[in-house]
Computed example of a mutant assay.
Amino acid sequence: MEKVFLGIGSNVGERILYIKNALNLLSQILTEIQTAHFYVSKAVGFEDQPDFINTAISGYTDLEPYELFKKVKDIENKVGRIKRFRWGPREIDIDILFYGSLIIEKDDLIIPHPRIHERDFVLKPLSDLDPDFVHPVLKKPVKELLLNLKEKSIISNLQLSTL
């Protein structure tokens, strides 16, 4: 079993419901899931769109990285993701952030996610889960990457009583 970290976001429609549905489906392929706080953040890349709700989860899997990637994409489709354009609006977006300390650089899969260190809406939830986790490429803990981040997109912490 390998520990993995996934980033989850939504900025279309019933954002919380999409995330809850994704978490439910992810619980079928991961064990010991822990969920970070939820954050509201401005869109990055293409900024003329609604704010995102973002979180991250950690869990364990016996799936190989490509199998996990395929399952994650299947879950996005089941939840209702509509393909639009790069960095466009998303009903649900699930990214593999880390797969243990594994490093994969292929055309169709890059782990760790290549822009983790640039995004507070990824680093802050990761820090909620495991601030001392060391990025296997950058060789720095998540909390240090967050501390050194210049640009911020998080607007607020979303207080939810239950998931």
Rank of each mutant, 00 (worst) to 15 (best):
V40F: 03
I29C: 10
I33N: 12
D51E: 15
T61R: 02
H113C: 07
P112I: 04
E2S: 13
I29D: 00
V44F: 14
K78L: 12
I154Y: 06
N148H: 07
L102V: 11
Y60A: 05
K139V: 00
D130K: 09
E91H: 11
D108F: 15
I82R: 12
F38K: 04
L97F: 04
L123W: 09
I111N: 06
L138T: 09
D128Y: 08
K139R: 15
R86E: 10
H113K: 06
K140T: 00
L25F: 11
H117N: 14
F46P: 04
I103Y: 05
I104T: 02
D48N: 15
E118G: 03
D48H: 14
L102F: 07
L145D: 09
L160D: 08
G88F: 09
G100P: 07
P131R: 02
L26S: 05
D120V: 02
D107R: 10
F85V: 12
L146S: 09
H37Q: 08
E144F: 04
L23I: 04
L129M: 01
L102H: 07
E118A: 12
L63C: 02
E151G: 03
E91F: 10
L149T: 14
I94L: 12
K152A: 12
F85E: 09
R84A: 09
P89M: 05
F52W: 11
Y66S: 00
I111V: 15
I155R: 07
F69V: 09
F5E: 09
I94N: 03
V4Q: 03
Y66R: 14
K42A: 06
M1C: 13
Y60W: 05
I92M: 01
D95M: 13
I111F: 06
E67V: 02
E14I: 03
P131T: 00
I53S: 01
F98Y: 13
A22V: 04
V137S: 02
N24L: 13
H113L: 10
D128E: 09
K139I: 02
Q28H: 12
I29Q: 00
D130R: 02
P89L: 08
G80P: 07
Y18W: 05
D51G: 02
S58A: 08
F46R: 14
L17C: 01
L68H: 08
D108R: 02
I96L: 11
H135P: 05
S41A: 11
H113V: 04
K124R: 13
I110S: 06
R115H: 13
L97Y: 03
E118M: 14
I110W: 06
T55A: 15
T31Q: 03
S101T: 11
I92P: 00
E144C: 00
Y39W: 13
K42L: 12
K124A: 09
E32N: 15
S127I: 00
L97V: 02
L123F: 10
V142Y: 01
E76G: 12
V40Q: 13
I104R: 05
K20T: 11
I16N: 10
V44T: 09
E151M: 05
L6F: 04
T55H: 06
E14V: 00
A22K: 08
